[in-house]
Design a binder for these strands. Sequence first.
DNA 1: CCCTGATTCGC
DNA 2: GCGAATCAGG
Length: 176
Amino acid sequence: MSWNDERVELLKKLWSEGLSASQIASELGEVTRNAVIGKVHRLGLSGRTKAAPAPARPRAKGPEQPQPQRRDQPRPQRPATIGNTALAPELEDAPEEAPAPAPAVAPDNVVTMTQRCTIMNLTESTCRWPIGEPGTESFHFCGGRSNPGMPYCTTHARIAYQPVQDRRRDRRLAYL
DNA sequence: CCCTGATTCGC
DNA sequence: GCGAATCAGG
């Protein structure tokens, strides 16, 4: 696959949004993060503004060369939810430790729309129920419509916020 | 060890 | 131009 206009555009967009090269690579598909970084530099949009933690590395190997390039300016703080971190909403005590999308007790809501939300598609109104192994390519979020004030859709909220008394007794845990 | 981005250089 | 390899760091 090559860098057609669409892909370059998406690259620019995502990069400017503060996503990491690997995240962008995953999103684009069929490219490695190296490819993304290389392209980013070629496009001249490196260093999304940032302090200057890395002054300038001449690289240990090979003959040294003058480095005309510069890339340091104050960086604007990345969006709150980046890096494969975060996303665990702090619920008082609901999810315990195993948020298991349990198909066990089939929810009446059969139409749990799984829109395959990636991290960047999450908004205030999208269900943040994690699906898959965090950190892997297939990992995504439910993406259904969340209820006001709640990070999950109705179906997943029911699983996450189980009534105290119910929580006590058995619930078979089943991961997706 | 996981991850970042940066740089070089053979292709 | 492309991107793997490599580097420097968190």
